[in-house]
Nucleic acid binder design. Sequence first.
DNA 1: AATAAATATTAGGCTAGCCTAATATTATAG
DNA 2: CTATAATATTAGGCTAGCCTAATATTTATT
Lengths: 218, 218
Amino acid sequence: MHSSAEENYLKAIYKLQEANGEMVATSALAQVLGIHMASVTDMLKKMSNKKLVAYQKSKGFKLTEKGRVAAIGIIRKHRLWEVFLVDKLGFRWDEVHDIAEQLEHIHSLELIDKLDAYLDFPKTDPHGDPIPDAKGVFAISKSVLLASLLPGSQGKFTGVTDHSSAFLNYLDKIGLSLGDSIKVKEVEEFDKNFTLVLKGKKSVIVSFKVANSLLISE
Amino acid sequence: MHSSAEENYLKAIYKLQEANGEMVATSALAQVLGIHMASVTDMLKKMSNKKLVAYQKSKGFKLTEKGRVAAIGIIRKHRLWEVFLVDKLGFRWDEVHDIAEQLEHIHSLELIDKLDAYLDFPKTDPHGDPIPDAKGVFAISKSVLLASLLPGSQGKFTGVTDHSSAFLNYLDKIGLSLGDSIKVKEVEEFDKNFTLVLKGKKSVIVSFKVANSLLISE
DNA sequence: AATAAATATTAGGCTAGCCTAATATTATAG
DNA sequence: CTATAATATTAGGCTAGCCTAATATTTATT
């Protein structure tokens, strides 16, 4: 079994690979984990010996298949626990991250599969992130950043890329919720503000910064 | 916040104090934790500095009030998670211990109180052990070992002192379940076997060894 | 009370996972 | 192409929590 530290590295590497393509840099990992580069070099050497990551000198490193499977398992656990915390225990979507970060390290395949069934096999977590099934397969769903859409486009708000409490609370405040159908009414040339029309004819204006953290599907 | 190692010590000390009175010996703790005595001495010195335990040279040590509160908090978490695993996820009572041992170290007061509410404030865990409330108070319930009862006594089977899979499976096999009303029909002089009559007029015979791990109330 | 047995403590080591400081390598700019 | 900046690695240290071996202290036995 992997240690919590290792699991955190695996998850972080996976996410960096998803976001920035193939190879990941020591510095990038150090930054997202809040750990010094020397320590990362250290740890990666160990994980490399365990065949969790493969790395080419000065090109960076990436997960091996074994590492990828492990990473997806952790992401699955994290997201399922988030669903549990929100759907069953009544936490708000901005409160669950830290607790799920702990719960994701509980070791028991049986536990997580039973939890999955108990939650009725959810496909996404409370932030709209996809949850891989027991085999590690994600139900593919294409989504784009609101920031990339042109006036007139429409779709459904299905996810966020910023999971901070500050951001999530802001969305709650302006009344934008996961699942809302939206239409881009206007994109202001001058400051890139987006004017959106929501299903119930309400309209909201969000900054480019916000639009850049909202995922739209369909 | 306390480390998992510390929490395991706290819980073990608490249980030893419950079982064997006031002072706990280094050796006893080493034995139940499966750790060498020298390591225990080490750790206790640290916990002593943190005022979690108080120890008098060569008399042993005991929890301080602070340590006791912490220990009860961990026990509360362990038992609530066990209820969750059995009642909600469908685990059997003999399967939950190891997973609960991990879950009990998740740090979040809010989580555990919400879990408690979600489970509808259970008073006992799947093995009949009492669950302290959020203030650390146990709903007192007097129980005695079946082994101490005389023929003719009756009561309700409300707990076990042996949590091993082997033992719990044996009880399942002979059809003895938590909550069953029982009456001691006979105690064989020769081998101390107990003949019990269950509510639905079934009768079962258990050895002294088994009787010594069954708690009877009322 | 003297000795053996049991119990406890000290001393020195080890690993995981982090740190700082120093050095090496690679990329970028003039 | 060289100087500087950015990135990566090595070397040496630290803490938590464990270990073994050696030593000390208690308790029990004769």
